[in-house]
Design a protein around this nucleic acid. Structure first.
Lengths: 211, 211
DNA sequence: CCTTTCAGTGAACGTGCGTACACTGAAACT
DNA sequence: AGTTTCAGTGTACGCACGTTCACTGAAAGG
């Protein structure tokens, strides 16, 4: 395929990609109210401004659309993780920095995080499975990150348990951020820091308690 | 109204109550696959064995049915809490006992807990709001319970933050129990105990860390 | 220049939906 | 015994849905 572009126009594949994006955006925005499950192909098509059947040129079903949205949303989530890791923050700043980055990213990509939070328990079986698998991956990554902190008295299995606790707590924080007015921003962040710190303090003082 | 009962038959209100129960049960079971949102009045009616319009004699809408299911499900949840508290277990047994009771109740009332977990983030706005309000109540109760543990160095606001962390973690454990085969039962319980203990150890060692 | 490709069109279909309305018949009440 | 109440019936309606199929017309390719 040649990428012929008669100035101002688009190639065929550019145009197709643009429609695909429009469908993804429309679906993300429409599903904010109904959930992915309560989304109809016709609604999406109308929002995009194409005829219902055109949908099939891009996705075979709403579920497949959902999977694309899961991938896209987790790109946002992984960008967040990368941002937390960046610059290898010193131990005493990890909590503050993590909460700051979480808050920033959730607000900047609110639709993506809302989608993940919603479809994690709500969606169709296949979408739900995809979300959970992504989270499982993420938990494993976090566990190896934790291994670098001064908690070598933890087995790798226990590190994973700890990682899950942190992930679950931070998902809850993200949900709280998504559904609260902006002025509660600082209060939520403060609470998130407290929770993270409790977990870390608990982890560090672990062995000494269980002798 | 007189409660006339010609042996073997039912009064009118008994019969009505029986249909209402059948609707609630059918809805609970059918929504296990589709979510409450993907549930139709006609489906429920068919499952119960009545004509669709009969539904209106009991609920004005699916949402109202949902609210009734929220209430019913939280009766199960509160029964669980009461069971945890029963006998005022000594400090060192609290974790083991809580996890045991959680596991027992989630398995015994799996439909109710699945409903709560699902509709917590997925359902219609009004049902979701009802679920969250119930959880908020529950968190506050747990916070006052925590105040009786040896952590008087915590402000009541921080106790609430801690309570939220525990609730969120235990919701995640309940979800894990619901979606795992029985043979992972012990592994999940062990992980749950670890998580609870980390939080408690973290809470107890709190002040000493923040000078 | 002529042919092929293919994103988007438009009409048509069968289905399941919520809801309206008038009804029935047994239980409850007077 | 006569009347009222009301849980459940049955029909009918308009609507939105997913999916089919033959189509169009411009871009891509030979």
């Amino acid at each position: 395929m040649r990428v012929e572009s008669s100035a101002g126009s688009e190639t065929r594949s550019e145009r197709k990609e643009r429609t695909r994006r429009a469908i993804l955006d429309a679906a993300l925005s429409l599903s904010e109210e109904t959930g992915l499950g309560g989304l109809s192909l016709r609604q999406v098509a109308k929002e995009v401004g194409v005829v219902p059947t055109a949908f099939y040129r891009h996705f075979a079903s709403i579920d497949e659309l959902g999977l694309a949205l899961v991938e896209e949303s987790f790109v946002s989530l992984r960008a967040m993780i990368r941002d937390v890791r960046r610059g290898n923050p010193p131990l005493e700043e990890i909590v503050d920095r993590s909460v700051e980055v979480l808050d920033d990213h959730v607000r900047a990509q609110r639709a993506h995080f809302a989608f993940i939070a919603r479809e994690r328990s709500g969606g169709s079986a296949v979408v739900r499975a995809a979300v959970r698998q992504e989270f499982a991956l993420f938990e494993r990554e976090l566990a190896t990150d934790l291994a670098r902190l001064p908690m070598d008295h933890w087995s790798s299995e226990d590190l994973h348990v700890l990682s899950r606790l942190i992930v679950v707590a931070m998902i809850a924080v993200a949900e709280e951020i998504l559904e609260s007015p902006d002025r509660e921003r600082d209060a939520i962040k403060r609470r998130a820091r407290t929770q993270l710190l409790v977990v870390i303090v608990g982890a560090v003082n672990w062995r000494s308690e269980r002798e």
